[in-house]
Design a protein around this nucleic acid. Structure first.
Lengths: 195, 195, 195, 195
DNA sequence: TATGAATGAGTTTTCATTCAT
DNA sequence: TATGAATGAAAACTCATTCAT
């Protein structure tokens, strides 16, 4: 008898429908809009049924968000450690972006600004624009490359800020040098290419 | 008559007390915990007083968060454009980290994970750990540098993901190469130094 | 299966309980006392339940008041237009008063002064008393008829005032004549009867 | 020294400014919009000053509304009782409408629908329209007279309802006859004129 | 197991009134 | 006496969670 299987499959399908609905809502309207009523409605189920699949709203958020991070953090580990670390890095990073490519909506839910309060979103944009301006100003970077370079640098600096916040002992000068370690070579390459 | 001045000063002081309380709450308990009641209680004021200083809760969030981004985005612009773009970058980035240095708590409120839902915060940590592992694995990066390199790379990739989400036309391979443009030189330098 | 019927009936019963509670509160304490808390308490329900039945407090007010007016305004229209207009008028007005007779409490909520601010209520009483005095003064109207004649005349004049307010072009003399068109014949009849 | 007089006059002037502001607000936005802040703002005074002139908001409402009713209820009493009761009635009613003529805004504040909740206002209009229809239907009343006749009859019936509510012993038939006592002669007059 | 009405604690916001300046 | 910031009780409304059917 595969009845238990069938009902189990049904169960998983319904659970997944809730997760998908949650992701869509987060991506489109932000976490604030993620109410149990909204999710069940979007999944075309009764409110009460929700608690058959999840213990709490937080439980759903966990399922909807957490395993995205898990998939991102542990993409298929290579069978054996590649001899060349850069190959490893290449593959690892490629996997991340491929994940983004195939799961754009899901990623927008988790990484997109939608889940942030408006002010945070606007703030990130503001800083990104500022960096874009600086990058453009010197004309070293060709216009078509400015956007992604600005995006990557914005992220880089955000990462640096996050680190600096938690390490009161590190100096600003030190962090600046560390950050520039990543930026300078890219700029130099462009500068040389431009000559 | 300095009466208007005095009351104006008092007004600003009380307003600031609310902003400070808001930042503290965000940093410690996340935006979700930012209720008008909580803020006024933390600032030792009556609930009603809140609306003497802000039109709405969102208005406070704006004041508490937005100007941090503004300060970050527009640090003293140099009188004249420095001849060397790298000097400019150095100064700009230094200013950012100096800001972090002097305003650590404030920055924790805005850039720390506190304003995110629990799951997002844990997710970011997870990815950071994964990257740390990869970085450690090859023994190229000395143990003491691993944490900040991992932090910066995590940010870099997050920035890349944000860009990729909004640009469906860009391929994963392309984004990977772009990201590696920033990472490789740093690794190479370590590799050479290690020889 | 009458399950949907049963739950639907239950739903309507509970909804009605809220409407009844609202009418009682308006009749006894005025519209100002009509709070969601008060209504649900009177109906012995939870606050939250209120919003299962009504979209907003105004929505309840609409339900509690509006359909009374509708019933009043459109009592069973006669199948065919009675040949005699006065018969028609008689029936129409009779229906109104019969409605009052059977729905006294409901009418008190809507037409009684309860829904007015205290001052307005007292004001209406004052004018009514004044008119009563004038009516009594000449001894034309027998004492037992004074109260209802005064009531009707008070209403008549209130109606005239309402009209005059919205028609700035009409003169006071004109309105007076129009009003007297209704009053004089009644008085004359009494005068003749009294001779 | 008329200093006390001067200050007293100033006091009365400021008090009146508040009363006027209150009336304007009631007429334009309804009693619900009558807040102490709104009144003092409209009168260009400080909130706190309000309580120098009135003990409470209700006290203001009393002053703003109550004396309108008083003026309406006791217009200049005739030195001696006119011999003809109808003359008396004419004068009394004329005075009412003259009062409306010169104090239209004030009257709108007190008698206009502005102070009623939306539903009550709509309800009164609905009934008035219904009566208008009936009056029109028979073609006895010339079109140009229909509006004011309908307005007066609506008021008349409202007055009757108010009476009936408070007198449970009176029958619907009785009230109908009483109401028609006022209406029929007017209609008959039109009918005869039309022949 | 599915349903959706019921619950009530918690949230934002308003406003009459007080009181220090 | 005039001012207007401060107060806090009370209002409308939301939503995670429970539970009878």
């Amino acid at each position: 008898m595969d009845a238990p299987n069938r009902s189990e499959r049904r169960r998983l399908r319904r659970r997944q429908r809730l997760i998908d609905a949650a992701r869509q809502i987060i991506a489109q309207e932000g976490v604030a809009a993620l109410t149990v009523t909204a999710v069940t409605e979007a999944a075309d189920m009764a409110v009460g049924s929700f608690y058959t699949y999840f213990d709490s709203k937080d439980d759903l958020l966990e399922a909807a968000v957490w395993d995205v991070f898990q998939q991102l953090a542990s993409p298929e580990p290579p069978a054996s450690l590649p001899a060349n670390p850069l190959d490893h890095a290449y593959n690892a990073i490629l996997q991340v972006y491929e994940f983004v490519e195939t799961q754009r909506d899901l990623m927008r839910a988790v990484f997109g600004a939608g889940h942030l309060a408006d002010q945070f979103e606007r703030g990130h944009k503001l800083i990104s624009q500022r960096i874009t301006l600086v990058v453009e100003q010197y004309g070293i970077i060709p216009a078509e490359d400015v956007p992604w370079i600005a995006a990557l640098q914005t992220g880089l600096i955000a990462g640096g800020i996050g680190y600096a916040i938690e390490h009161p002992d590190v100096t600003a000068a030190e962090m600046t040098e560390r950050t520039l370690k990543f930026i300078v070579p890219v700029w130099l390459e462009y500068a040389q290419a431009g000559e």
